[in-house]
Each structure stands twice: as structure tokens, then as C-alpha cells.
Amino acid sequence: MKVEEIIQRFGLVPVAGKGGLDREVQGGYCGDLLSDVMANAGDGALWLTIQSHKNIVGVSVLREVAAVVLVNGREPDEDTKAKADEEGIPILTTGMSAFETAGLLYKAGVGRTQE
């Protein structure tokens, strides 16, 4: 599923990095510790976090996540948005918690291995 489709299906709001909306989502990861995300997020993951500072874009580029979802109504800093636009990393926002967002995504099949 592409980031674009995730946005439409789950009502997430794209606020930056719109050049990357055709990136393929291959799974998901929840984490607010950057090293944990670096170590454990999979390629093409949708990364759910409350961190909104610019360094999330660097982690996303290096870890090759598909997009970042800022949960709990968090908004990215201005320099985060600028960097995300530059790198083409979509940043999406939602008022839902990480738990709720992950639950909906998982139910819809994101990040579930074939049974």
C-alpha cells in the first residue's frame, strides 16, 4: 500500500514531504527513542512517533522508512517540515494515539505477515 492510500483510508493529514507520497509502506513501527527506531524499524515502515523535531527526518532517510506519522495531534517544527520537503519524506499527522493508529493500520493488514 502506498502512503497516499494510507492517508485516504485512515484520514491522516499530510503536512510535509508530499514528494514522497508514492512511497510503498511495507510495515509499521512505533517508537520515540531514535536509536530504537534505527535498530528495529523495518525498511519501508510507517513510523509512528510523538517526536516532532528535525532529527526524525534524518533517521527516516537513513533507516529508509516510508513516512512518519506524528500522533496525539503533534505538529512538526518548521525546520522539520522544510527538511522533510527537501528529502521527500512524508510527514502525516493525526489526533489519534500511537496505540489507536497502529491498531487501525494493523487491522487493515499493514505490517502483518501472511498467515
Partner: peptide
């Protein structure tokens, strides 16, 4: 608070 300093830096490198 920014999500750094989880004590995973050098272990991640080692891995």
C-alpha cells in the same frame, strides 16, 4: 526528551 540517549548507540554500532 528528544529521543536520544537510550543507551543504544554503541550497541547498535557493535551489532
Amino acid at each position: 526528551e528528544m529521543g536520544f540517549g537510550a543507551g543504544m548507540g554503541l550497541p547498535n554500532i557493535k551489532k
